[in-house]
């Protein structure tokens, strides 16, 4: 195996955390993920919101939604399953009641949105366009929620449908559209390609993985809708693989990586796999200041590893070097060969 790159550690102040994501410049790569940060206010008791680079809001639909029956969540090994049901205040109330607070906090506001059908998505993008210039930076189009029948998962699994929908939403707003993709597909690259060609400014990878847990005593599922979405560290390896696949196939497409990030090292793995920025999700439930801990750890880790800028490590992961070919006829390596090693 090749030796790791040796770079001298840097003092923390020499590490520049700023990063670019398509048209955006962010002060650092750590955002909070949709559904795990509500509309931000609740966190102000526990942390300085302005230290975050940004947040993705709870998914917004054209009209308010009440959400699913309970139980809605259950903890599983290294993660949790949820089926909240995209409960939200609706686009109008969001713009009126929630956006001003976020805008005043100076965060990069990504509004996660969805519709119950094709036209609902387009309508939502159009409604949210009114937030341009009032704090909204990005519309994160959710075509990947597993938890409502019309929650968009069909839009997220067929490339042609995703292409058509993305194109229509891009036309409905002048805000950049970042498409949040589902991992519940066999070819995530085809999905990313389809939305990129339709004008998406980037992709968010990944949403939750469809999952189930059973209570053997009651012989019932632990989630009222039977299946829900798995999140947390349990899904991180899957998320990393998908970020890496998409980045390798589409190196110009900005990727926001997410899936089980709990530490600065997790965040750096996503960046090295190809993400330009990352979102912290389930960890916010474990402790409300989780995203800032990730940020501080990332900063310290970059200093330790001598990484001066985020850009220099986006997608930097290299394949492991091939081994010396096997020669069944040779009892041992020739001396000359051995000497080289």
């Amino acid at each position: 195996m090749s030796a790791p790159p040796r770079t001298a550690a840097l003092p923390r102040e020499r590490v520049d955390l700023r990063c670019g994501f398509g048209p955006l410049t962010l002060p650092h790569p750590i955002l909070a993920a949709s559904g795990c940060f509500a509309y931000g206010q609740q966190f102000a008791d526990f942390m300085d919101l302005r230290r975050l680079a940004g947040l993705s809001t709870k998914g917004i639909s054209p009209k308010p939604r009440f959400g699913n029956p309970l139980p809605r969540i259950c903890e599983t090994a290294s993660g949790m399953i949820n089926s909240i049901g995209l409960e939200n205040v609706g686009a109008e109330a969001f713009l009126r009641d929630k956006l001003p607070y976020l805008s005043a906090a100076g965060l990069s506001v990504w509004v996660n949105f969805f519709g119950e059908d094709f036209d609902g998505y387009v309508e939502c993008a159009r409604l949210l366009d009114a937030g341009r210039g009032h704090g909204i930076d990005v519309l994160e189009m959710n075509i990947s929620c597993p938890n409502i029948k019309k929650g968009g998962i069909e839009f997220g699994t067929v490339p042609e449908v995703a292409h058509r929908l993305t194109k229509a939403c891009v036309a409905a707003t002048s805000l950049p559209i970042v498409v949040k993709l589902t991992p519940n597909v066999s070819d995530v690259v085809a999905m990313a390609q389809a939305v990129a060609e339709a004008g998406a400014a980037g992709v968010s990878l990944i949403n939750t993985i469809t999952a189930m847990a059973i209570d053997v005593r009651t012989r019932r599922p632990r989630i009222a809708t039977t299946y829900g979405g798995l999140s947390g560290p349990a899904i991180k390896p899957v998320a990393l693989r998908m970020v890496h696949q998409v980045h390798r196939a589409l190196p110009q497409l900005p990727i926001c990586g997410m899936g089980g990030i709990l530490s600065g090292e997790d965040a750096l793995e996503f960046i090295m796999a190809g993400a330009s920025c990352v979102q912290v999700g389930t960890a916010n439930f474990a402790r409300p200041d989780a995203s800032l801990r990730v940020l501080d750890e990332l900063h310290a880790l970059m200093a330790e590893l001598g990484i001066a800028t985020v850009a220099e490590v986006v997608g930097c992961v290299q394949p492991i070097e091939p081994e010396t070919p096997w020669n069944p006829a040779a009892a041992s390596a020739p001396d000359a060969e051995a000497g080289k090693r």
């Binding site: 559904g35 809605r72 969540i73 409960e87």
Partner: peptide
């Protein structure tokens, strides 16, 4: 008592079914 992830109104996991203007 309901299953809770966060405890402060973010995860929306601990819904309680109620009567009135909202179902939960």
């Amino acid at each position: 008592e309901e299953e809770m992830a966060c405890g402060f109104g973010v995860c929306l996991g601990c819904a309680v079914p109620v009567h009135g203007e909202r179902p939960y």
